[in-house]
Design a protein around this nucleic acid. Structure first.
Length: 205
DNA sequence: CCCTGATTCGC
DNA sequence: GCGAATCAGG
C-alpha cells in the first residue's frame, strides 16, 4: 500500500481527531502503526508546533562553528534537548448539562479533572465543574451492569479499578473489566475519569 | 504484558 | 520517502 492522497487525508483527519496510530493503521489497512507514525512525522504532524512564521532552523541551529560529530552509530543518548512549551488546552466538545442525575457515584468521585491553566491571560472560562459526554455516562451505566464485580484482591494490572457500590457494605466491588493500557480503568471509566487524552507531547528524550 | 508515540537507519 | 526495529514511557 502506498500513501495516496486519500489515505494521507484519512491519516491527517484521524490524527487530528486524536486517534492513536494503531487505530489509524487499522482503519487504513495494509500499514502498521509504525508506518503511520513514520508518516505522521514526515508530514510534520507529530507536534502541534505550527510555526507559520518559521522557515529555517530545524531545532539546533549551529551558530557558527558547531562540532559536527558524524557519529555513525549513535546508540544511546542522541542528546536532543527541546524546550517544550506548555501545550494550549483544547476543547474537545461542549457536552450537555446534567446527563444523569442518579449517577453511580463511586463514593469518592475519582474525577481528576485536568486544570491545565495555559499561563496565558484572562482565564475567564472556569467551566462549570463537570462536562462529561452523555454517551460516556450512559456507557458507564451499561458497563457497570456487566462488571466482573471483582474484589480488591482480584484486581490486577489489567483490570478496571473503578469502585462500584458502597464500600461499607457487601454490595461493593470493582468493575474488573479489562483496563486500558497503562490506565487504571476500563475504556468506559477512563472516559468519565479523564477528559483529555492527547496532550502527552512531553517526552524528555 | 498491554499499549502509546518517537527515533533511527537500511532500503 | 518508507517503515521495521528499537527506544522510552504509561
Amino acid at each position: 500500500m502506498s500513501w495516496t492522497d486519500e489515505r494521507v487525508e484519512t491519516l491527517k483527519r484521524m490524527w487530528g481527531e486524536g486517534q492513536s496510530a494503531s487505530a489509524i493503521a487499522k482503519e487504513l489497512g495494509g500499514v502498521t502503526r509504525n508506518a503511520v507514525i513514520g508518516k505522521v512525522h514526515r508530514l510534520g504532524l507529530s507536534n502541534r508546533n505550527d510555526d507559520s512564521s518559521n522557515s529555517s532552523e530545524p531545532a539546533a541551529a549551529p551558530a557558527k562553528a558547531e562540532a559536527p560529530a558524524p557519529e555513525k552509530k549513535a546508540e544511546k543518548k542522541p542528546a536532543a534537548p527541546k524546550p517544550d512549551p506548555a501545550p494550549a488546552a483544547a476543547k474537545p466538545e461542549p457536552a450537555a448539562e446534567k446527563p444523569a442525575a442518579a449517577a453511580p457515584q463511586p463514593s469518592f468521585t475519582p474525577v481528576p479533572r485536568r486544570p491545565i491553566v495555559p499561563a496565558g491571560q484572562p482565564l475567564p472560562p472556569q467551566p462549570s465543574a463537570n462536562e462529561i459526554s452523555p454517551e460516556a455516562l450512559a456507557n458507564v451505566r451499561e458497563v457497570e451492569k456487566k462488571a466482573r464485580k471483582l474484589s480488591l484482591m482480584e484486581l490486577t494490572e489489567r483490570t478496571c479499578k473503578w469502585p462500584i457500590g458502597d464500600p461499607a457494605t457487601d454490595k461493593f466491588w470493582f468493575c474488573g473489566l479489562p483496563s486500558q493500557a497503562g490506565k487504571p480503568y476500563c475504556e468506559a471509566h477512563v472516559g468519565v475519569a479523564f477528559q483529555p487524552m492527547s496532550s502527552r507531547r512531553d517526552r524528555r528524550r
